[in-house]
Design a protein around this nucleic acid. Structure first.
Lengths: 121, 121
DNA sequence: CCGAGTTACTTTCTCTTGGGAAGTACATAC
DNA sequence: GTATGTACTTCCCAAGAGAAAGTAACTCGG
């Protein structure tokens, strides 16, 4: 059994905060949710994340792997492919991230309307 | 009744994606969860966010207000105080963000251990 | 009235970060 | 040899983030 060390997200020096920053990072959040549909390759992730650059995808993937949230598997097949998959550790985070995405998609209209408050009355 | 326009977080041009980026922004996520405990003042938020600079807090707060996620109320009392509070729109997001923070705090040990994989065997 | 302190920001300066695009390595197809 | 495809890496430059000082309105003390 693991020690029940509870991190503190409010403390910038706590690793728990780093973990929080890691999963809420600009591209990490998108990538993690994409991976909920199953393991995926570089090119798939790049397409689905929508707007990510090669450089940022590589960096995001490496950070996520270093943090133990995803695994990287190289398949030395003919054109060479690499698969990325979620670890068990990541599951809880992706669930919350998925809720956040659903919320954002469902409330898109409210958000757009909030930006036009001056024209509302 | 609102139109049921569902945003698409994968599309970088969709306002739903902007909304997602807004709530997952570095400091916005911390501030939104802090505000779940009730309306708070500038100095409170600054203390609780842990490590945010004045500039970034101001910018985060303004972005959040512009997006309709928080309200800003000025109390022209003696030393001057400004209170920030969540809007109804923000509620769904803060709930998910809270889950994410809880997850990060609960799995801090796992994260720390993942970073030491080379010493594990 | 003058200076010090408080709160809520704004501005400036500088260093880090992020995006775009080209380059690399390996293999296939022609 | 040239073009295509996958999975990255490197370089350059502009946007962004942090530190710290400055600002504005008001109060207290002398």
């Amino acid at each position: 059994m693991q020690e029940s060390i509870r991190g503190n997200v409010r403390d910038p020096a706590c690793p728990g905060r780093q973990l929080f920053d890691l999963v809420t990072a600009r591209w990490a959040a998108l990538v993690l949710v994409d991976l909920m549909d199953g393991p995926q390759r570089w090119s798939e992730l790049r397409r689905r994340a929508g707007g990510v650059s090669d450089k940022m995808l590589a960096q995001t993937l490496r950070d996520l792997e270093a943090g133990g949230l995803i695994t990287r598997t190289v398949h030395t097949s003919r054109p060479l492919s690499v698969q990325y998959a979620l670890t068990d550790l990541a599951r809880g985070a992706t669930a919350a991230l998925q809720h956040l995405q659903d919320w954002a998609e469902q409330h898109t209209s409210d958000y757009v309307n909030a930006g036009r408050r001056s024209a509302a009355g």
